[in-house]
Nucleic acid binder design. Structure first.
Lengths: 231, 231
DNA sequence: CATTTAAGGTACTTGGCGTACCTTATGTGC
DNA sequence: GCACATAAGGTACGCCAAGTACCTTAAATG
């Protein structure tokens, strides 16, 4: 229970302030997080471990969740998407990494945080970039390369389309609550959904021939009423 | 604050038991839920409103969440998928209904519950059927009709493929925390993702080959803001 | 050295879930 | 009808951690 040289007891050492203290708190929080998950992250615990008190924490983060998110971010790193030279390979690899992450202890924490944030967009946003999923950028990167190689249709370079695979994967975790997703499912997502979707849609060699039908309003389709369900 | 004849004060009436009491509790819980959301659903509150006490509740449900889910289910009804005679129409309509539900007060409650369940599969499962979304059945129904009409490829009759649209929609709510999804987004999901995916993939001389229009701007639009990475 | 700023120390309020325990109806089987 | 088992009513309380208040004390600032 004695603290390490960095996060020392409030004993005889010099009193830390500013960045140094913040660092110590974050470090302590990250430790608690890895040891006991978000559920086990208590303000008193962090304060004690950092050799300080709750005041110092609340001066920096408004509540436990913010601290939890900050600590989580500290535990993750960013990576760049694979470049295997093959669309399928890239996609599968990127999905597998995501799957590994979500299945890891860190993934469990991420889910706890996501759950605790429960729709608070600002907080959600801070997790997004790390959960690496919604992040469209890497997917667009993968697809751009594929388009250049002629493996994907240019129309696929659209955030909503590009991220379909990861959204389906995340769905498994978030909505179905599975601890990990089997590789078969990943393959299925790729082969049954993603590739058919992003590949040149017409066997035609002229991409603009079919689909990119010149704009024109998204179909009238009025009739917004029809109540039955809800409320 | 006086109770109605059904959920009466513990005063002079006859003591309810079994099903009658259960009904009263559930009714009270549903009321609390609609008035204050899951956050405002307290065991003491429900007990008081039902004119009973917490014991009676805990004898039936193990914890607050279970009660919340039971009460939520009581507030929802099931409906069957539309049959407009047109794939796009059916899909859009079904998405719109889901969107309305998720955007409604009931949808907010659903999100709270989902968040509170936080990956507890058994509980999640109980919500699934009602959130009516993940439920693959209605989607398969819609697609079967479309296949019969020659509007969709038989390969699309696969749960993972069939439910793609709703998964993307739910993603907006659950992950991005938006209060409601604009109709434009629904249209985008349908035209950019769903229809291209389920339609006969190699359009030949078929009548259905003349893609009735992935309309609107297919413009690649490499997405302005990007910059996040992953893991 | 005086003053301001932030850290340390403590104790306390709050809020609700979940439990314990006892009393009192109800209803069922004899 | 009566006695016993069963379940409801009534209350109080333990618990646990979040967040707050307030004062003391060390460090920066100048």
């Amino acid at each position: 229970m004695t603290e390490d040289p960095t996060g020392r007891p409030g004993a005889g050492r010099t009193r830390r302030r500013g960045a140094a203290l913040e660092e110590a708190i974050l470090r302590a929080a990250a430790e608690e997080l890895t040891e006991a998950g978000y559920a086990g992250l208590t303000m008193d615990g962090v304060a004690a471990r950092a050799g300080t008190n709750k005041n110092a924490i609340y001066r920096r983060w408004p509540n436990r969740l913010s601290l939890g998110i900050a600590a989580y971010r500290r535990l993750t790193t960013t990576v760049s998407p694979p470049d295997t030279g093959d669309l399928r390979g890239d996609v599968l690899e990127w999905l597998r990494r995501a799957n590994r992450h979500w299945s890891s202890p860190l993934g469990v924490i991420l889910r706890e945080l996501l759950s605790a944030a429960g729709g608070t967009s600002e907080l959600l946003a801070q997790l997004q970039e790390r959960s690496g999923d919604a992040a469209a950028a890497p997917w667009l990167t993968i697809l751009e390369r594929a388009v250049a190689r002629g493996e994907a249709a240019p129309e696929a370079l659209h955030p909503r389309v590009a991220t379909v695979a990861i959204v389906l994967l995340r769905n498994e975790f978030v909505v179905r609550g599975v601890p990990t997703v089997s590789d078969d499912v990943l393959v299925e997502i790729v082969d049954e959904v993603y590739l058919p979707l992003v590949r040149r849609r017409a066997g035609r060699d002229d991409p603009a021939a079919r689909d990119p039908g010149p704009a024109d309003a998204p179909r009238p389709e009025p009739d917004p009423r029809i109540g039955a369900r809800e409320e």
